[in-house]
């Protein structure tokens, strides 16, 4: 009874606590050191970069020259604009299409319902990179290559996870809500627009964050379909650094840091939603 108020630690317990913190600190460091080294280098002048070891701290933490140089060299302003356009369009379209599809699949019983679900399930198994072998052919045939609109349409078309998130969430919205609305004379559109969409808000936030991060970071298709320099998205424009600036790591690191700042800000602001989104997306993903 003596021990009830105060927890006593056995030697083994103390050892375990030490092991816990050592592991956390070790793997935490592993996770940040590559990024930190990039930050350090991004603040160095070219001479400093050539003369000092990469892990030596820069002379001045206020040397933003590399950032402005990288920003101009890779035309990142334009790229940010493009990324924002792509993200906004893809998110709006895929939320509308996704919630509508989920509404129909979840609320109405009709022949082909299971078939459609299975078509999506099957589609989720196909790896995107493999599909691009022939999607490329179709994009060319539809004259969608080298156009922002084409890229946006393609990104909307290959969206499976968010549909699952919507369907799952909708299963928890009681059908009685629909029924009472029907009795009140509401049309199905009203039910979707006035009842379902507002109730789906958490699911919409989750899927927007997941999809937003995905779209922001997508570079393989952007590389394939957006050749024109004016159309580059942020992820795509980092490729600019591959060629002539291939060894000027102080510039490259600055570019990398600029590109991941938005993700960092969103992450700090919406940690909770991101974590729960990961869990929701994984159930069927």
């Amino acid at each position: 009874m003596v021990n009830v108020g105060k927890k006593s630690y056995s030697p083994l317990g103390i050892l375990w606590i030490i092991v816990e913190y050592v592991s956390l600190i070790f793997f935490g460091l592993c996770a940040v050191v590559p990024v930190i080294s990039c930050v350090i280098t991004a603040f160095k002048t070219s001479e400093e970069y050539q003369q000092t070891n990469v892990m030596t701290l820069p002379e001045s933490w206020l040397n933003f020259d590399n950032f402005t140089k990288a920003f101009e060299a890779a035309n990142m302003g334009r790229a940010f604009l493009n990324s924002v356009i792509v993200m906004v369009c893809v998110l709006i379209v895929s939320v509308i299409l996704g919630t509508q599809l989920a509404y129909v699949l979840n609320r109405f019983k009709f022949p082909g319902n299971t078939l459609i679900r299975n078509l999506y399930l099957f589609a989720s198994l196909l790896p995107a990179v493999a599909m691009q072998v022939t999607v490329f052919n179709i994009m060319s045939a539809l004259h969608l290559v080298n156009s922002l609109a084409g890229y946006i349409i393609m990104m909307c078309g290959t969206d499976v996870i968010s549909i699952y998130i919507f369907i799952q969430f909708m299963e928890n919205i009681p059908v009685s809500l629909d029924e009472s609305a029907i009795i009140d004379g509401a049309s199905y559109w009203t039910i979707y627009w006035k009842i379902m969409l507002p109730l789906l808000k958490p699911a919409i936030v989750t899927s927007c964050i997941l999809k937003g991060v995905g779209v922001y970071n997508e570079y393989y298709c952007a590389n394939l379909y957006l050749m024109d320099k004016k159309l580059h998205t942020i992820a795509r424009c980092l490729y600019t650094f591959v060629g002539p600036m291939g060894s000027q790591y102080n510039l490259i690191c600055a570019g990398v840091i600029i590109s991941l700042l938005p993700a960092l800000i969103v992450f700090i602001l919406c940690q909770k939603q991101i974590y729960s989104g990961i869990a929701a997306g994984a159930v069927k993903g």
Binding site: C38, R236, Y239, C253, G255, L264, V266, F267
Partner: peptide, 13 residues
């Protein structure tokens, strides 16, 4: 956080 960094940025890093 590394999960949120784009593949190409990870490549450079």
């Amino acid at each position: 956080f590394p999960y949120l960094i784009s593949g190409i940025a990870i490549g450079f890093i």
